[in-house]
């Protein structure tokens, strides 16, 4: 299949799906080039090494959701 054949299908997509197609193609090209585009990268990355309380809360919620799914 060629891009020319794809264009009418792409044109028929709704706005949301067009955005997703753009993201998909950008990610595919990035993967081929071994690069990643990071939006809004204005802050230096700092790891959440000490967010133990948040971790406990999320784990508790996960456990509750799994228990509810079993019921």
């Amino acid at each position: 299949m060629t891009v020319t054949e794809l264009l009418p299908t792409l044109k028929a997509l709704n706005h949301k799906e067009k955005i997703r197609a753009i993201q998909f193609l950008a990610n595919e090209v990035a993967k081929e080039e071994n690069v990643v585009f990071v939006e809004n990268q204005e802050h230096e990355f700092i790891s959440q090494t000490n967010s133990f309380e948040a971790s406990r809360v999320l784990q508790k919620l996960l456990d509750e959701r799994k228990a509810d799914a079993i019921k």
Partner: peptide, 18 residues
Amino acid sequence: IKEVFGLLDSGSTVNVLP
């Protein structure tokens, strides 16, 4: 649905979503 890249950070206690 959203296609994203996540940084694998074994030193982070949690997942973080912008």
